[in-house]
Amino acid sequence: LTVHVGNVTYHFDNPEQAEEWAKRMAKKYQGQIHVKDGQFRIE
Rank of each mutant, 00 (worst) to 15 (best):
residue 3 V to M: 02
residue 1 L to P: 13
residue 7 N to W: 11
residue 27 K to Y: 10
residue 43 E to A: 04
residue 3 V to G: 01
residue 33 I to N: 03
residue 6 G to F: 14
residue 24 R to H: 12
residue 27 K to D: 13
residue 27 K to N: 10
residue 43 E to W: 06
residue 23 K to A: 05
residue 8 V to L: 10
residue 28 K to G: 02
residue 7 N to P: 09
residue 11 H to Y: 14
residue 37 D to G: 03
residue 17 Q to H: 11
residue 8 V to I: 12
residue 5 V to P: 01
residue 9 T to C: 15
residue 37 D to C: 09
residue 17 Q to I: 09
residue 6 G to V: 04
residue 14 N to G: 04
residue 32 Q to Y: 08
residue 4 H to Q: 13
residue 41 R to V: 15
residue 3 V to H: 01
residue 4 H to R: 10
residue 29 Y to P: 01
residue 3 V to S: 00
residue 14 N to R: 10
residue 15 P to E: 08
residue 9 T to D: 05
residue 41 R to W: 15
residue 26 A to Q: 04
residue 32 Q to E: 10
residue 34 H to I: 15
residue 22 A to G: 02
residue 38 G to H: 04
residue 19 E to M: 14
residue 16 E to G: 10
residue 16 E to D: 11
residue 28 K to P: 01
residue 20 E to D: 11
residue 41 R to L: 14
residue 15 P to V: 12
residue 38 G to Y: 02
residue 4 H to L: 14
residue 4 H to K: 12
residue 9 T to M: 11
residue 29 Y to L: 12
residue 20 E to I: 08
residue 8 V to H: 12
residue 28 K to Y: 12
residue 4 H to G: 04
residue 43 E to D: 08
residue 7 N to G: 13
residue 34 H to P: 03
residue 34 H to A: 10
residue 7 N to M: 08
residue 43 E to F: 08
residue 28 K to Q: 07
residue 33 I to F: 06
residue 29 Y to N: 03
residue 29 Y to W: 09
residue 27 K to C: 09
residue 10 Y to F: 10
residue 30 Q to T: 05
residue 38 G to L: 04
residue 10 Y to M: 04
residue 28 K to R: 12
residue 28 K to W: 08
residue 36 K to N: 10
residue 18 A to Y: 04
residue 5 V to A: 08
residue 22 A to L: 07
residue 2 T to W: 09
residue 9 T to F: 06
residue 18 A to S: 01
residue 26 A to K: 02
residue 40 F to N: 04
residue 20 E to W: 12
residue 19 E to G: 05
residue 5 V to S: 02
residue 7 N to R: 11
residue 40 F to D: 03
residue 12 F to E: 00
residue 13 D to A: 07
residue 34 H to T: 15
residue 5 V to I: 12
residue 26 A to W: 05
residue 2 T to S: 11
residue 30 Q to E: 07
residue 10 Y to E: 00
residue 35 V to A: 03
residue 12 F to W: 02
residue 3 V to D: 00
residue 11 H to T: 10
residue 42 I to N: 04
residue 13 D to W: 08
residue 4 H to P: 00
residue 36 K to W: 11
residue 30 Q to I: 04
residue 18 A to H: 01
residue 28 K to E: 10
residue 18 A to N: 00
residue 23 K to L: 10
residue 2 T to R: 06
residue 14 N to P: 00
residue 42 I to Q: 03
residue 15 P to W: 15
residue 22 A to K: 03
residue 38 G to V: 02
